[in-house]
Design a binder for these strands. Sequence first.
DNA 1: CTTGACCTTAGATGTTACTCTAAGGTTTAT
DNA 2: ATAAACCTTAGAGTAACATCTAAGGTCAAG
Lengths: 133, 133
Amino acid sequence: MKISELAKRADISAHTIRYYEKLGLLKPTQRSESNYRIYTNDDVVTAKFIKRSKECGFSLAETSTLLAIKNDKSQHVCAEAKNMTSSKIVEISEQIAKLKRMQSTLQELEVLCCGGQESAEFCSIISNLEKVV
Amino acid sequence: MKISELAKRADISAHTIRYYEKLGLLKPTQRSESNYRIYTNDDVVTAKFIKRSKECGFSLAETSTLLAIKNDKSQHVCAEAKNMTSSKIVEISEQIAKLKRMQSTLQELEVLCCGGQESAEFCSIISNLEKVV
DNA sequence: CTTGACCTTAGATGTTACTCTAAGGTTTAT
DNA sequence: ATAAACCTTAGAGTAACATCTAAGGTCAAG
Ligand SMILES: [Zn+2]
Ligand SMILES: [Zn+2]
Ligand SMILES: [Zn+2]
Ligand SMILES: [Zn+2]
């Protein structure tokens, strides 16, 4: 199949597929006589693999590492995949914790402000941000 | 005070302070004869304002809007500050929700994998990512 | 009077992940 | 045969947020 077919099946834009190729993540199996990229069903699997990996929060660089495992399983061990997964869980937990801190700070600010059409002269959101700690 | 003193007091690098100036967030009150940036205590307040705003999750562009309110309170109303705060809370909630989805997917993958030194041939993390949905 | 710390500028570089453009070649259907 | 749809490339642009570099000027202390 050509790139637009792969794009449709994997739900990734053709642009992005070419970009992934440039990064070495997804090379078409062959080229047609007219130099068009020709993909196989295996490439669809790989494209979806990349998409799912991204949905799990792995960067393209990390996804590349996961792809290397997928593409040569016998040369890799479970520990590699599990370590990456565990690290990512920790990383995401930290991001969630940080966002929750932001959220509660913002909520504290939000309740203090009347939100009306009066001058911001005494707005508690602004004065709280201004406050020297 | 000169830039490094402000940098120390606000805990922002001098580089970053110059960058903020380029963006129009923090202009030094005056320049010395030798063209050095000279800051006042008010500038320290502003610098810390920027830092706190960032810590709340506001982008530099949004921080710029907040600064405009802070710097001319009488020309702005509480509603502006409160709307920004409420929107940011929503935005952060969405980010948290997304990260939680990732986290639970990753946790499902994690428990299935033995994590041992055996070949990744049957690694459930890899095969799950590979699985055509 | 020199050494080292500090200051200046414009602009290049880095990260992540695309997204788009221009200028052109190919395929397919009517 | 010709128009629409599709393909190619290199490279530029975007967003967000810095971080660093080069090449040079200034200041305070010993
Ligand atoms: Zn109010
Ligand atoms: Zn208010
Ligand atoms: Zn295993
Ligand atoms: Zn495994």
